[in-house]
Amino acid sequence: MTADIAIEERAAAELRREVARQFGRSLHIRTLDTGSCAACEQEIRLLAAPHYDLHRLGFFFTPAPRHADMLLVTGPMIRAFAVAASKTYEAMPEPKLVVATGACALGGVYPDDAFTYGRVDGVLPVDVWIPGCPPSPLALLQGLLVAVGRLAEKVSGLSFIARSPEGAHEDATAGGAA
């Protein structure tokens, strides 16, 4: 069991190295809207604005899946779009990455909706997940850099437990009021 995990981890590390070698300096992105409200698209568009300027990092947008290395998917993957989405994915040359962007794509907003798959990995194999509603351009930038192996993933080390110095004091007051 532990040996299997070690083998898997070694394979994952090797894959990350290979992705960084292939895509670390230049990556072409095709965006795919699978039924999003276009807030994510607004933020993706801002990546090309002067303040964020993703071209300085070697990322480029391309209109054709055949020229794309990465599929940046937004929206909850509506069922009517599933065939088009998988055709887009198949049209991309190997190796390819899929990044799910925004809470819808991650299964947050429409998890039980009859007209959607609820999340992108119902149809496409997802490599990197970027939370946010919408994710800010900086969050998207970090996601892209994680996807190509130039930044380490940070969220798995976060606990989202707040430790506050005034916590004990608030405890006392709330106890008195109750």
């Binding site: 991650l106 299964g107 990995d121 997802v126 490599d127 990197v128 997940w129 970027i130 939370p131 946010g132 994710p135 800010s136 900086l138 969050a139 970090q142 996601g143 994680v146 996807a147 930044l151 993933e153 940070k154 969220v155 798995s156 976060l158 606990s159 989202f160 437990i161 707040a162 506050s164 608030e170 709330a174």
Partner: peptide, 25 residues
């Protein structure tokens, strides 16, 4: 407001979906 604060984190990209599910005791 006394139980929830802003985390201030924006670098949230994860390479696995399960890494985004946090358990708070």
């Amino acid at each position: 407001p006394d139980a929830v604060v802003s985390s201030g984190e924006f670098e949230l990209a994860a390479t696995s979906r399960s890494a985004l599910v946090k358990r708070i005791p």
